[in-house]
């Protein structure tokens, strides 16, 4: 059954969307870019980062574009001073929560968090840095997990569960103590479920998950491959 077509307005422009689509998907198809961090095309949306917040006419609250489904007559604003203010704040809060020192990071120059901060014009943070001392898990023979760079987007969790089916990752703890954890929080290298496929590494928007041996600025990610893989999986009967 073909999906029902509905009309919505994005930044004043009338566009056609399909029922069941999210605001983000409809906007992307209409050629409008909404900034995202935790969204990765091909993985289920998580609504974890709150960067994609948009204004929807008729409600005071901002809504995440990546998880909010379109409705007939919806009018969305994706660019406004208010949104920029919130997005900036969100990125600043991510930056102070861990030690994102770009100059010594494997992903310097290829990091989605860094690119987001740059595009929002963030040059400093208005909040105190938390400077937590977090461990770096080097136990895996090919990969590294540096908690100091993690923004808890859960893209690794979803890539592992949805594309590899291994379910190595999840988030443990809560609040400021939340960490991505492998299995029962044993070292990654001892994980009985990890297949060493590297999908989590490719999914990670920052330098938190990287290949061993990569030096500063050397780690580039191929998220496009994950998206293609997800597409071909869906196409299978």
């Amino acid at each position: 059954m073909p999906q029902k077509k509905i009309s919505i307005r994005i930044d004043g422009e009338l566009v056609t969307a399909l029922e069941g689509q999210t605001i983000l998907q409809a906007a992307q198809e209409a050629g409008k870019a909404i900034p995202t961090l935790c969204y990765l095309e091909g993985l289920s949306p998580a609504g974890a980062c709150r960067i994609c917040m948009v204004e929807v006419a008729g409600t005071e609250r901002l809504l995440p574009a990546c998880t909010t489904p379109v409705q007939e007559g919806l009018a969305v604003t994706t660019v406004s001073a208010r949104l920029t203010q919130y997005r900036r704040m969100t990125v600043e809060l991510l930056l102070i929560e861990r030690n994102h020192v770009c100059s010594v990071c494997v992903s310097n120059g290829h990091c989605e968090l860094q690119a987001m901060a740059t595009s929002l014009g963030i040059t400093n943070t208005r909040y105190w840095y938390d400077f937590p001392t977090l461990p770096v898990d080097m136990t895996h023979e090919r990969f590294v997990l540096d908690h100091n760079r993690c923004i808890l987007c859960t893209r690794c969790v979803r890539a592992c569960a949805e594309l590899e089916g291994a379910n190595v990752w999840d988030v443990g703890g809560r609040g400021i103590h939340t960490r991505v954890t492998s299995d029962l929080a044993q070292p990654w290298g001892e994980s009985p479920t990890c297949t060493s496929c590297g999908k989590c590494v490719q999914a990670c928007p920052t330098g938190a998950l990287a290949e061993k041996g990569a030096a500063v600025e050397e780690m580039t990610k191929r998220t496009d491959r994950l998206t293609r893989l997800a597409g071909s999986k869906r196409a299978q009967p």
């Binding site: 190595v168 990752w169 999840d170 988030v171 299995d183 029962l184 929080a185």
Partner: peptide, 20 residues
Amino acid sequence: HYVAAKTRVPPSQVYSVATF
């Protein structure tokens, strides 16, 4: 570990729930 194995819930999820 035993609960995860028996329920077939991935250990990572069992740990996530137990620590949340």
